[in-house]
Amino acid sequence: MTAVTTPVLSETGTGTPPGNVDGQAIAITVFSTVKRWGRAWLPVLFLEPKLLPQTLGTLEKLSFIHFARWSMVTELAWNGAPQPKTRLRRPHLYFESNFNGGWEEYIDAFSYVLREGMAAFWGSSYGFPGAVPPGPFKDYIKTSDRRLEASHFYSAYADSTVTIVKQALELDGLVADLRERAAELSPEQFKAEFSALLAKGQRCL
């Protein structure tokens, strides 16, 4: 009988450590070490994300990231003793995401539909296994994310997903329009206008 195999991380089920959850909202915090060429490449990518015309558009369409950020950490500020003076040999890429939805679905989406984008952001990091297949890529992200479980994570509207916010914003114009005219309309006219609003806004309700 062979020794027990280490279960592949993507099979552990819960995906997200509890500290990274507030209602529907989930935090990801990841550090990766950047190779030399990344020091030149990442600033170009950050300055001109349109180098990846599809990536930001795809993120927009996938509609599950509220806010995300990438930062290249090349040095840490000095605050006096006893802080050790640290000279970083390589840049470290900080990534954080504030998103909704299950971890599994999230990284699947990255792998399958943001393949080029993920390679652009993490291709210059040590250990990046490629975005596809999702298994090894999930392990790569999870390994760092688990170590960086948030001690406190806050979302101001923890039950609202990105899609709900965007739908609600779209409805706002329709509702405002009817609101302005509601008082002038007869009840029958109002009912007809209300039905028209519900028809126009049905994809957002």
Binding site: E11, T12, G13, G15, Q24, G101, G102, E104, T163, R203
Partner: peptide, 20 residues
Amino acid sequence: ISRQFEAIQVQWLNDGNVFG
């Protein structure tokens, strides 16, 4: 079970967000 049955139950049947 987590990727298949549970994802269907949790993400698709219990919540509608994925579908708007």
